[in-house]
């Protein structure tokens, strides 16, 4: 008809709709996503098959239920949680310290921090753990000569070796996170803090770090979650965390998969709780960032 009709519509076998205001009352039908429907059905089928396979497979779910709250597993759980907390605390403390050192104008301090980050990020965690645990081979005794001295094997227990291994390794990663957080705070904030008479340390503590937290919290939250699972590596040096204790049980009763499921369930539990905690922590440190404008306006106080 009219030569101005869209050629693409004709090309797809559709006639161009003629001008007709009387069709304005017609019902609109949204586009149908047949591809998504088919994908959903396929995924549900596969999921159902996997669930069926596990339900019919050679897993004794009674054993799983029975060992879920076994004393040995719960002890391991407590050790996992304590180790996560201690290693992360050490990691964050070292991270803040080395982030500050790496930004120091002094070449020695900066050099030490660069070396620390390079070394501990550059070698496998498992290897570091084995070195700490076997440190007695290098230094059979430690102490201050003439004052006190102890045997290294008495000091370097699985707990201490794991704490040092995980904490010091974590510090190298956290240092980079903290450094980027500190760099994200405008230098004007530091200048304003100086102008009201703050020392550099007070400025860092009261002004820079609280604002850097907004940038630091999300990656550190991820690292806490990684740490929960990384503690399982310590099973190789005999630290009695949840995986190690599950292994000890299945060496005796041969219920390997059942006990691994028990351990997996507890890891998932801890991680779920931590994920929820992280959400609230992020919201707290977002204050003043402009993303929280929805907070109820405080009624004006008459002065």
């Amino acid at each position: 008809m009219s030569s101005t009709a869209a050629p693409s519509a004709i090309g797809m076998g559709m006639k161009p709709e003629k001008f007709d205001p009387s069709i304005a009352h017609l019902t609109h039908v949204p586009r149908r996503h047949y591809g998504r429907w088919m994908a959903s059905v396929l995924i549900l089928l596969v999921f159902g098959y996997v669930v069926k396979a596990f339900a019919e497979g050679q897993i004794d779910w009674n054993i799983v239920g029975q060992f879920l709250t076994a004393q040995s597993i719960l002890n391991g759980l407590v050790n996992t949680i304590i180790m996560t907390f201690c290693a992360m605390a050490l990691g964050i403390a070292l991270g803040v310290l080395f982030a500050i050192l790496v930004m120091s104008p002094n070449p020695v301090l900066k050099g030490v921090a660069v070396f620390y980050i390079w070394f501990f990020r550059g070698t496998p965690l498992l290897l570091q753990l084995l070195i700490w645990f076997n440190l007695a081979l290098v230094f059979p005794r430690i102490g201050i000569p003439g004052l006190f001295e102890v045997r290294m094997v008495d000091v370097m227990t699985p707990f201490v070796a794991t704490l040092l291994g995980l904490g010091i390794n974590q510090g190298a990663y956290t240092a980079e996170v903290v450094r980027s957080g500190i760099l994200s705070v405008d230098t004007g904030q530091t200048e304003a803090a100086k102008s009201i008479g703050m020392t550099r340390l007070t400025t860092l503590r009261r002004i820079v770090l609280p604002q850097a937290m907004r940038v630091i919290i999300p990656p550190v939250g991820n690292e806490v979650i990684s740490m929960v699972k990384l503690t399982s590596i310590a099973s190789v040096i005999g630290f009695a965390e949840v995986l190690r204790n599950a292994q000890t049980i299945y060496y005796a009763n041969a219920r390997v998969i059942e006990l691994l499921i028990v351990a997996a369930a507890w890891y998932l539990m801890i991680v779920t709780v931590l994920t929820i905690g992280q959400h609230f922590l992020e919201r707290y440190f977002a204050k003043g960032s402009g993303r929280r404008r929805t907070r109820p306006a405080t009624p004006a106080v008459e002065a």
Partner: peptide, 8 residues
């Protein structure tokens, strides 16, 4: 640039 402390 004012430099008010953004978190306060």
């Amino acid at each position: 640039r004012f430099n008010l402390f953004q978190h306060l």
